[in-house]
Design a protein around this nucleic acid. Sequence first.
DNA 1: TGGTCAACTACCTAAATTGGTAGTAGCAGG
DNA 2: CCTGCTACTACCAATTTAGGTAGTTGACCA
Lengths: 220, 220
Amino acid sequence: MTLAETDDLAVKIIIYEDNADYGDALRILFSHEKDIELLSLFTNCSTVKEDIEALKPEVILMDIDMPGMNGIEAVRKIRQFNKVVDIIMVTIFDRDEHIFKALQAGATGYLLKTSSPDKIKESIKEVHNGGAPMSAGIARKVMSFFAGTGNTSAEADNLSIREKEVLGLLVKGYSYKMIAASLHISINTVSFHIKKIYEKLHVNSMSEAVAKAIQGNLLD
Amino acid sequence: MTLAETDDLAVKIIIYEDNADYGDALRILFSHEKDIELLSLFTNCSTVKEDIEALKPEVILMDIDMPGMNGIEAVRKIRQFNKVVDIIMVTIFDRDEHIFKALQAGATGYLLKTSSPDKIKESIKEVHNGGAPMSAGIARKVMSFFAGTGNTSAEADNLSIREKEVLGLLVKGYSYKMIAASLHISINTVSFHIKKIYEKLHVNSMSEAVAKAIQGNLLD
DNA sequence: TGGTCAACTACCTAAATTGGTAGTAGCAGG
DNA sequence: CCTGCTACTACCAATTTAGGTAGTTGACCA
């Protein structure tokens, strides 16, 4: 009974990993771990949908660099039919491009293959517990992404209340006429506000102003 | 000599925390930790610049909810003159708004006050080691931010090569005339391409198209 | 091989945007 | 109390954009 009980409590995982050596290492690692049950290990992603629907894993370890469908595409595909299974990316690269694409695709965690066996086991439990395990350097990159996202230009500060209001409507695709109606002012007045906005943002067309407003987080 | 040596190796930190009880708890926590040296604990942020320049801490624990200048504003102020010191936010709230504002301001980590003493000590070492410690739920929120950032609309896929090219120039603020010159085609042709783009994106003005292109990550 | 379709090219007119000009109200400093 | 400054309102002429129409080319398929 004790065995059955631990099986019930164990986190059920599957692995996608084309490298035989690393795959074997993981297999051995989890064979000694009563809290984690490795349901299956696949060397390619051609049957992800069938695999997941048949085995119903709670956590997936996904290698990024695989022949055929790579790990990021696989995540994208999985998310089309399953939003809840936790997916931890495992890779030898910490290239920014990979990281952000994987996260955008819907990955829940991101580990480097240099991670210790303990870190991997701990990460599986952590992700299953509502966390988002990341290797230290990865986490730092993710955080750095946010720094600088905010409005630093100080250009927004110079915009008056009314101007910010108008800019907000421009970004929403309103025309002069629609803005005039929305704010109960003449279209000529709208024109003037927009002119001042262009001056302050150093642009001279609606599209430039909109691009700058969005990219520079000029609105709240 | 042993004592001096550990002092050299210890991570030097300062704390901003207005709650006396929690502050005392931290003070006691670190007094028993040889790897961490608490240089000072402040109950408000009015003198952050002076504090940091005088004490030269390696890590700062910053409470978010403080009277006067709050923790997020304090981080923003610190980053104006110091880009390297690691700052870990500590708060009782896990409100999304706080999290993202703190990260944008330049925080390096984000812990909840419910974190165990061990987690706090570990986090200080982790951040000092190039990581970005976060409470589990926080990390998950940060990750979730990215999911959905990517282009899911599939609208971009329908754009032809030429149309993406034109849209890219629109986003850069080019006028029809400039695009025509840039692509060596007639302005009428540019007009046609843009018309098709509007159709495919379901918009009917330049600003809407630009907004959608940027917000929906339609370009690479 | 003829038909269909998507992509790219181009012109034209009506409507919208840009940039110049100007008046009024409110507020801070001398 | 007046001056200067900023925000907000408004009009008009010149330019630009939006939407309608159409010809050419190349790819795919029956």
